[in-house]
Design a protein around this nucleic acid. Structure first.
Lengths: 168, 168
DNA sequence: GATGATTACGTTATAACATATCTTTTTGAC
DNA sequence: GTCAAAAAGATATGTTATAACGTAATCATC
């Protein structure tokens, strides 16, 4: 009974220490899990919420630091890597290959391949979905007898805001 | 004089333990260095030769191991990273972002942005140069007020040979 | 040839990113 | 409640990359 009490307090503490998560994103996560037969645990949701709350790409270790600070306890790297795997499996989060960071998907309504415009000044991420580009890539592959599985397209540069900031 | 002799032997030993390098690639390297005002040292050339000799993407640490074996001495990671930086600066080598490996450029005649078809079965790299794709990427960026600096395009999948190997 | 500036190279230490392995806890079916 | 499977945690290790510092080679100028 002591244990149950302690556990109750622990759970309350954890939920109190989770970043706020708009209903929109929670519903999306629930939907994706239902589709894929995955389970949406509080820990997984907390990681997702943290990433959404940050709004910029996070490295795995930055993410760990933020979660530890919020929850007031140590979190093992592997734990977060597992959460990230889950979030990527379910299409809720992307990995930005060129920066080794992670970023929540901006296009909640459907799974898809994305392309990214990454601002090297402010860190802003613009997630683009160009069917024209996907078609062209498929065509290039096809011409060479290559059977594509997935494509990484990440353009580094300056976002509109930062580009204006620099006098051209 | 003893020192000079020792040094001479050392140099001889190193050059004897460099991977063979076709004249074509050596000329290319010399040309690029001349253009960019870089210096083509024996150590840099040895790394380049090793990569060309291997013919598949190499991680920095695989590269170190091969160089150490060939030269019979220890090589510090940073040393090789500097050589890789040089080779990338001069456009002789590409970094494959999605695999964190390095691969010599296949299109020696001019500097350019490349796209890659990466076989996840045999490791084959097909370096593609599609102006159509570059134009489309530029257009996508422009529509969003984004000023692109450089683009990573890496498609993972099965090369022609491996795709045939699998019964479709 | 001596001097000093510049660039490259070497060594050690450490940061940053990721996975392996094993144990404990939680969950959900029965 | 019992039990098996899934998830999470703890610890150690592997992999990739950079920092900080000192030394050596190269080259222009005197």
């Amino acid at each position: 009974m002591i244990n149950e009490l302690a556990r109750g307090l622990e759970l309350a503490k954890r939920s109190a220490t989770t970043a706020p998560l708009a209903a929109k994103w929670r519903k999306l996560a629930e939907g994706r899990c239902a589709e894929k037969g995955e389970r949406l645990t509080p820990a997984r949701l907390a990681v997702y919420a943290e990433m959404l709350g940050h709004g910029r790409p996070l490295s795995a270790y930055e993410l760990i630091a933020r979660l530890e600070q919020r929850q007031g306890r140590k979190i093992a790297p592997l734990t977060v890597y597992r959460h990230l795997d889950f979030l990527m499996r379910t299409g809720l989060v992307h990995r930005l290959q060129s920066a080794q960071t992670y970023f929540p998907c901006d296009h909640p309504d459907h799974a898809h391949e994305s392309q990214f415009l990454l601002c090297s000044s402010c860190g802003h991420v613009d997630e683009v979905e160009s069917s024209g580009l996907e078609t062209l890539l498929a065509q290039i592959a096809d011409e060479r007898g290559f059977r594509p599985d997935n494509a990484v397209v990440e353009v580094k540069g300056l976002c509109g805001v930062c580009a204006v900031g620099e006098q051209d």
